[in-house]
């Protein structure tokens, strides 16, 4: 499967009705393009300067490519997004090439039908061993933390391969990895964030604690999921 996130910052002065139209277009996309799976439009609740997250997935690169050539994509979604469109309402992203990220997976490991989604984009560096041990610590969170229903960490392979979903056409992204978690509720999310688990403390410190040497940069988003 291909897991995909589009992450948007709205232009200053973007009309609220146009924002609602974009959100509605994301929500209705699956009605027109059935290949698109598990679509959620989230309003980011973190301090990061992004407002809208659209998460979804495709069964295969072929399914993704049918989305790419579908008239709904060009006619409706691009209307609000492409730089040259008179109706564009999004701004150049403070995340740079973090506007579009994603990864490949064997199945819907990300799936949750309700709760709170936390997404952290990481730019990792350092040795493979440093990165590997850090990633394993992130992956293990769901097994040790109450209220965490899933914890997936994968390399961001999609951002540079957006045309067909698999073939890189851009230089490597500054965001090397995606960490996405599911929390059973906003309360369990808050309890984790304010708790004293090693990862929560590391995040609160700006990923400066021991074991986080691989973290060059990180940005956190979270939003409600209600399918």
């Amino acid at each position: 499967m291909l897991r995909r996130f589009e992450i948007y910052t709205m232009s200053e002065g973007a009309a609220a009705e146009k924002e609602r139209a974009l959100e509605s277009a994301f929500r209705r996309c699956g009605d027109f393009i059935p290949e698109m799976l598990h679509s959620v439009v989230g309003k980011n609740l973190s301090d990061a300067r992004v407002q809208m997250v659209w998460e979804h997935a495709y069964e295969s690169p072929e399914a993704y490519q049918r989305y790419m050539v579908h008239p709904f994509h060009a006619n409706i979604l691009d209307r609000y997004l492409l730089n040259d469109c008179p109706e564009r309402i999004v701004a150049d992203s403070p995340l740079g090439d973090g506007t579009l990220v994603g990864y490949s997976c064997e199945g819907p490991v990300y799936f949750m039908d309700h709760g709170l989604r936390k997404v952290v984009l990481f730019g990792l560096e350092g040795t493979a061993e440093q990165q590997g041990s850090f990633v394993e610590a992130l992956r293990g969170l769901a097994t040790i933390q109450d209220g965490v229903t899933l914890s997936v960490v994968e390399p961001n392979t999609f951002g540079v391969a957006w045309f067909d979903g698999v073939t890189p056409i851009l230089p490597p992204s500054q965001w090397t990895h995606i960490w996405e978690l599911g929390f059973s509720s906003a309360e369990t999310y808050d309890a984790y964030q304010q708790g004293d688990s090693p990862l929560a403390r590391a995040e609160a410190s700006g990923w400066k604690e021991d074991g986080c040497d691989a973290v060059r940069q990180a940005v956190e988003l979270h939003y409600t999921v209600n399918l």
């Binding site: 060009a74 730089n83 008179p86």
Partner: peptide, 29 residues
Amino acid sequence: IRKNMVLDPRWYQYSEKTARLRTGGTRRF
């Protein structure tokens, strides 16, 4: 075409210039 244009740095440059001059508008297929 969409792929080619978004991979062309010149597309971003002129898009910014035209956006500054526009007060509104539409795109329809």
